[in-house]
Design a protein around this nucleic acid. Sequence first.
DNA 1: AGTTAACGGTTGATTTTGTAACTAACAAGG
DNA 2: CCTTGTTAGTTACAAAATCAACCGTTAACT
Lengths: 145, 145
Amino acid sequence: MTQKDDFKLQDFLPYLLNQAAEESGLAFQQIYKDRYGMLRTEWRVLFHLGMYGRMSAKDIGERSKMHKTKISRAVAKLEARRMLTRERDAADRRLEYLTLTQAGKAAYIDLRGVAKAYDTGLAGQFSQEDIDKLRLMLRHLAGMK
Amino acid sequence: MTQKDDFKLQDFLPYLLNQAAEESGLAFQQIYKDRYGMLRTEWRVLFHLGMYGRMSAKDIGERSKMHKTKISRAVAKLEARRMLTRERDAADRRLEYLTLTQAGKAAYIDLRGVAKAYDTGLAGQFSQEDIDKLRLMLRHLAGMK
DNA sequence: AGTTAACGGTTGATTTTGTAACTAACAAGG
DNA sequence: CCTTGTTAGTTACAAAATCAACCGTTAACT
């Protein structure tokens, strides 16, 4: 091109990370979509509630860095599908605590199992040492220090 | 939760990759958006044409794994902004070859410089050895063998 | 040639996201 | 109390992504 063109898009970290994220998540996405008709935002909310138990939308937002509108909509859908219930805080009536229903817990446990196996499969392509380092670096890049 | 819950969402590779991709790309995204009003699909098309020179939408699709409708629309926008021109193949009149205009090249060169500096900044957080390994693993996960 | 299938690319309808503005509730200072 | 500001969450509207159907063209088979 116009000057010596030693730029390689395939090495550009944001691009590479995106491609890896997309490709590596595809098959898992297919599962929660097919099995429960969920969106990514929805399974993320589900996972947060499954892992940490009862919490507010705000708490989820802080941990996941998802925008509050996404969470609001995901919660609405999960509620419509009877996967969670809301409960207003008596002391501060702006707050709503979210809890998984039995159906929600069942979905969480199911998907958690899938995720674990899936992750094991991905990680299995590398040595334990390498995968540990990868996770460490990714956490660093993600700002999850 | 219901059983021993040793699942950590923060270690789940597709999730972690997504967070890292999102976070690491944010500031760069801001630049091509502010400076040229571009979308991610648009700068990707721009970069492909800048790096490889004249090519068809289909070629871009194969290399970038973007869906053809995204590419079609990105090309239309770049054309409207006079960043590229189309040229029909005389032999196979379904094909269109895309070429950057001067303005397109200038934008590419500008953004390529930004990307390089940006990437250097990201990579600088790690040792050369680690960053090489990271890229290798990401390429592997992305299926870009 | 004539039919059918496949391909490159575009378009339109629907879904999902992003951005702002909005409620309703609380908090702090006067 | 009463303003002003902030917070948790929702909603409305615009921007963008997805999906399927589409057009014109080429290829393949008969």
